[in-house]
């Protein structure tokens, strides 16, 4: 049971992110929702790579024993870097939206409809 806690946390984070995206009206909070989903997925990836009592996979100076598989960590790093770019772009857009619309309420930021 105790080993399932990370997976439960993943589900909770993703659902919280979706909740924020759907029910929160502030654009900044929606951006936070996206970051929550992203953290959930990253946590999932990193949990997949966990091996009990394993060591860092440095082949040249290995003390012996089980090595953790490095791919999930590499994937997570890439995902985090991409996430930073996405969040930065989103926040800059939110800034521009505030400049044009004078509000951050998602219900009022809808000149484009129908």
């Amino acid at each position: 049971m105790i080993f399932n806690i990370p997976y439960i946390a993943v589900a909770v984070l993703i659902l919280l992110g979706l909740y924020a995206l759907i029910f929160k009206r502030n654009l900044i909070k929606m951006v936070i929702g996206i970051t929550l989903i992203e953290s959930g997925v990253n946590l999932f990836l990193i949990t997949l790579g966990y091996r009990k009592e394993s060591i860092a996979p440095i082949y040249t100076s290995s003390p012996g024993g089980v090595m953790a598989f490095p791919v999930p960590q590499a994937l997570t790093l890439t995902s985090i870097v991409i996430g930073v770019a996405v969040i930065a772009l989103m926040l800059s857009l939110v800034m521009h939206i505030y400049r044009h619309y004078g509000t951050l309420d998602v219900r009022k930021v809808r000149r484009l409809k129908e």
Binding site: M90, L93, V109
Partner: peptide, 8 residues
């Protein structure tokens, strides 16, 4: 404004 909104 519309372009920024669409981008977001």
């Amino acid at each position: 404004g519309e372009s920024v909104e669409a981008g977001f």
